[in-house]
């Protein structure tokens, strides 16, 4: 595994350039949650030339639909969901809304990677199915848009040392391809 790097949002050009596929990251700061339905609404808003409910410039979207919080917790279990379901929306958010980071799980499409390289964005992966551990890194959570979507609403999370891995860096180096190629025997 690569070196452990601490990253704080909003994401600067320098911070993104310093991240290489394979680095371990402890992520802190404000991040925004969104999954399929919120992405559909965000891209429709952009296409209509209207203002987004959240300024995504230099921000990071976490693909997650959290479980309900128990009393006293800011959030319930909140591990990453499958990122590829957002592949058809992500390039537009990167190109037109200034999105610089994504956090989810699993591989991305060539279209997403192309948009990331053009605009120097980064894709981080958290470990799917570790929702309890990740929920402990979330210090505060509030719904800021599309409340009617329930778990799929856009939330503003304040996170501290959320553990993740640089899966695809802004040069397009792709840990999913490199890692599998290294261990393939068939």
């Amino acid at each position: 595994m690569g070196t452990v790097k601490r990253v704080t949002t909003p994401l600067t050009e320098e911070a993104i350039a310093a991240l290489q596929a394979g680095d371990s990251v402890l992520l802190s700061g404000v991040i925004y949650t969104a999954r399929d339905k919120a992405h559909k609404l965000l891209t429709e808003t952009l296409a209509a030339g209207k203002e987004l409910p959240v300024d995504l410039r230099n921000q990071l979207i976490y693909y997650v639909g959290p479980a309900p919080a128990k009393p006293g917790q800011p959030i319930g279990s909140c591990g990453p969901t499958t990122s590829s379901r957002m592949d058809s929306y992500a390039p537009m958010l990167i190109r037109q809304a200034g999105l610089k980071g994504m956090l989810g799980k699993g591989p991305r499409s060539q279209e997403v990677i192309a948009a990331m390289k053009e605009n120097k964005a980064v894709y981080l992966a958290a470990i799917g199915g570790t929702g309890v551990a990740i929920s402990h890194a979330v210090k505060k959570a509030e719904v800021i848009a599309y409340e009617e979507l329930g778990t799929c609403a856009i939330r503003r999370l304040e996170v501290e040392d959320l553990p993740c891995i640089v899966a695809i860096d802004c040069e397009g180096n792709n840990l999913y391809e490199q890692g599998i190629a290294q261990y393939r025997r068939d």
Binding site: M1, G22, S24, V64, G65, P66, A67, K70, G76, S77, C78, G79, I127, G128, G129, T130, G131, V132, A133, S135, H136, P163, I165, L175, G179
Partner: peptide, 25 residues
């Protein structure tokens, strides 16, 4: 990476039991 993922998954599984919280959202 694989070892790290498996360690995290096993740790999460313990935490889920301890906190009576869903192991996955």
């Amino acid at each position: 990476f694989g070892q790290y993922c498996l360690e995290q998954i096993l740790q999460n599984c313990q935490m889920a039991r301890e906190h009576q919280q869903a192991m996955c959202q």
